[in-house]
Design a protein around this nucleic acid. Structure first.
Lengths: 268, 268
DNA sequence: CGGATAGTTGAGTTATCTCAAATGCAGTGG
DNA sequence: CCACTGCATTTGAGATAACTCAACTATCCG
């Protein structure tokens, strides 16, 4: 349990002041730039960095517009406990995390996996979120933004707000799909769909190397995401591999037979 | 299949023009007034009708601000097919409806029950919703608002928008709870929770008469909402009644032993 | 009265769970 | 480097919650 939260560093106040004045491209330090992609992806602000609109600061500047602390946390530690949903919004920069609900007796449901660029939930941009817990799966770097600032920025630039609502809709649609999966689909379907969903998400982030994709999930995560038991997950994954649909080794997953996997996922 | 959609009538254009100018209380016809509660509840705009704010028209006028058609539809008919999520937003005035997702092979998951005042999903106020189907459970009266108009109103009065986002958060929280229920709770828990949730919702609407509450759901609805089978729902409800927790007769439900019901629901 | 939809009940099946033991694997401290 | 501890995974054997099928009854409505 070597808890070295030591690498956490704080962005300068200088950046902050420039921002609220809305004076844009200024203060675009190298470090601020590096993490801009997070916020951009998270809000679906644009397809590529560099594409600007007239009425507000350049997109790559938004990241620098806000006060934020920059933290690194080891795997398996909780980033945001379900109690402390106060004024900060965490956004993942590197690594995988999971956002979940937990019952007092320990049963747990993972609502979504957070990849680099994901904000926990667009919903929490404007209002604090209820009892959700966010925990790191791999080592995770993330930033914490101050809700009040983010909020004022959003309301200042209506087209940003528009983007947020779009992201909202999409998230909501995913939440609904999740309910459908959990309520009405078989274990095989759920697991196959989870894999395909993650593959798609990773493809967007461009984190797929050849056919293989980074796959740091423990079977316990898959179980908690699909409403199943780790034991059963193990069996199903075993079958999938024996059937030649996927290959898993050393924290990476390859989809060997996409057609067959899609078929068993009842995909689209 | 006697499709008498005949009672549908359309509100006047006169109302519309007054509105967009933002000139408030004008045009507050009796009929517009009658259905204002719908919109008010749906957006959680206020606790009581009559409480105004300075920067926008009185709350009870909002309902009259917009073009809307006013429809009546018999039980069991679909209000909004999953294909036609175009420019209109339905809001329930009287009766119960269900919003659901359906798979090609017929499996169905009900995402929420819509009671008077509910909008299908706050999310759909700003952007069209994906493949959700809304269907009437009882006979239903509802209004259709034009999204573009509603949207411009919302953006014109920021505090209204604020209310919408609040409703959003709440909805999202409920969607998350649903996932938790479906993924991690037993049949008994799910059904008990559904009953308690509905009771709470009805209590807010003030539709509970003594201990008994209106309960028009078929067991098939309960099944589709809880991810179970109608047969199994029947068995569980039977047990609940034999255990003296609830009484069901002639489309109304009484919670006879709330304590026990809450216990089996693993409530709060 | 007849026909449709809804609910009940029993018998047998199946998907998924629980328990448990065996194996592997990674990090820790000596 | 080794032994050790703690987690992850695999596998098997049974247990069980929920499902399917099917027949029967009740209710509703024209």
């Amino acid at each position: 349990m070597a808890a070295q939260n030591g690498i956490a560093s704080h962005q300068s106040q200088a950046v902050k002041s420039g921002i609220l004045a809305g004076d844009a491209e200024a203060d675009l330090t190298q470090s601020a730039y590096a993490h801009t992609a997070c916020l951009v992806y998270g809000l679906h602000l644009c397809g590529r960095v560099g594409e600007n609109k007239a009425r507000r600061p350049g997109l790559q500047a938004i990241g620098s517009l806000l006060t934020s602390s920059h933290n690194k946390i080891p795997a398996r530690r909780t980033i945001c406990h379900h109690k402390e949903w106060s004024e900060f919004i965490p956004i993942i920069c590197h690594g995988w995390a999971a956002s979940s609900l937990t019952l007092p007796d320990g049963r747990r449901q993972i609502l979504s996996f957070l990849l680099p660029g994901d904000v926990v939930s667009s919903a929490c941009l404007l209002e604090p979120m209820s009892g959700r817990t966010v925990e790191a799966i791999t080592e995770v770097t993330y930033r914490k933004f101050k809700r009040s600032e983010l909020k004022s920025i959003l309301f200042k630039y209506p087209d940003l707000l528009e983007k947020v609502t779009t992201a909202w809709i999409e998230e909501r649609a995913q939440a609904d799909e999740l309910a459908l999966d959990l309520g009405r689909r078989t274990a095989d379907e759920r697991i196959a769909r989870l894999i395909l969903n993650l593959a798609e998400k990773l493809a967007k982030c461009g984190t797929i190397i050849g056919q293989a994709m980074e796959f740091p999930l423990r079977q316990r995560h898959i179980a908690d995401a699909t409403g199943l038991t780790p034991v059963h997950v193990s069996k199903v994954l075993g079958e999938f591999q024996r059937a030649g649909m996927i290959k898993i080794r050393s924290r990476s997953l390859t989809i060997a037979n996409a057609t067959e996997l899609r078929r068993t996922a009842d995909w689209r």
